[in-house]
Structures are given as structure tokens and as C-alpha cells.
């Protein structure tokens, strides 16, 4: 999350806005903001209803569930439900016509989109005159 914070000034100069979305309850989300000194909106998608519409939700298998519990991670407490479902990490750029302009989804939990790729997309959108 801190990685995206670092590109925030450039992202804003390009007219963009950043929204982070997690299944955590607003209380836990506020803790995340404070812990990481984040300066962008972090939205609470309890029950993964929005993540579902982006096609990102999957059930956590029994084996991994036991591992998380072994680490002391109780998803039911963080997320306010006991579904043990999570969103895949995914990043999207949406333009003013509500069309997806960049989509990055990975099932490997240690991969993320390079923040520079987001800036490249925003520059391309600006250069085609898509940003007022």
C-alpha cells in the first residue's frame, strides 16, 4: 500500500485519483491508514460485494485458512463476516466513460503491478486528450 502512496503526487498531477478497496471493516481500515500514513481513500467493501463485480473473489481453502489462523489472522474479525473469502490483488484504471483502461490481476499474492505502469497509462490517456 505504501508503494502506491509514493506515486500519489505524480498520479494527482496527471489528474488521477486513487481508491484502495479492501474487505476490512471501516474501523480496521482506519487502523491501516494510521499505521501506513496513507493519504488516499481506503474504502471498505464488507462482504466483497464490489470485488465480486470485478471478478476477483475466491474462497480461501481449508489448508491456507489453517495457516492464516496459525499466524493469528482471524479474517472473520477483520472483515466482519465469516465467509473466508478474499479478493485477488487487482488494480484497474477507469476513465470518465467508466471504461477499464488498465487491468492487472494476479493470483500470486507476492506480485503487484509496478506503480510506474499506472503512470504510463495515465499519461497515454492525457495525451489522447481524455483528461479535461
Amino acid at each position: 500500500m505504501r508503494a502506491y502512496q509514493k506515486i500519489l503526487p505524480q498520479l494527482k498531477l496527471l489528474g488521477g485519483e486513487l481508491l484502495a478497496i479492501s474487505p476490512q471493516t471501516p474501523d480496521k481500515t482506519q487502523a491501516t491508514l494510521l499505521k501506513n500514513f496513507l493519504e488516499y481513500e481506503v474504502l471498505s467493501d464488507v462482504g466483497n460485494r464490489v470485488a465480486q463485480r470485478f471478478g476477483l473473489v475466491y474462497p480461501v481453502g481449508a489448508e491456507v485458512r489453517r495457516i492464516y489462523q496459525g499466524f493469528g489472522v482471524d479474517l472473520a474479525e477483520y472483515n466482519g463476516d465469516d465467509s473466508w473469502e478474499l479478493p485477488l490483488p487487482g488494480t484497474f484504471v477507469i476513465d470518465r466513460t467508466m471504461t477499464v483502461r488498465l487491468s492487472f490481476v494476479d493470483a500470486d499474492y507476492t506480485r503487484r503491478l509496478e506503480p510506474a505502469a499506472i503512470l504510463d497509462t495515465l499519461r497515454a490517456m492525457r495525451d489522447e486528450g481524455g483528461i479535461p
Binding site: 489528474g15 481508491l19 484502495a20 478497496i21 481513500e41 471498505s44 484497474f92 484504471v93 476513465d95 499474492y109
Partner: peptide, 25 residues
């Protein structure tokens, strides 16, 4: 959002490109 204020995607995209990132927690 973190303080309970509702944020609508279409209101954000009306102002400019929106970058949405989903994370687990």
C-alpha cells in the same frame, strides 16, 4: 471510506481517471 463517508466511483471518474486497487487487508 475510513470515516464512514460514502464514495461513489462515477463521481470520482467524472473528475478524472480513477485508479482502483483491491487488497486483502
Amino acid at each position: 471510506n475510513a470515516v464512514g463517508r460514502e464514495v461513489r466511483l462515477s463521481s470520482v471518474t467524472a473528475r478524472g481517471p480513477s485508479v482502483i486497487t483491491f487488497y486483502r487487508g
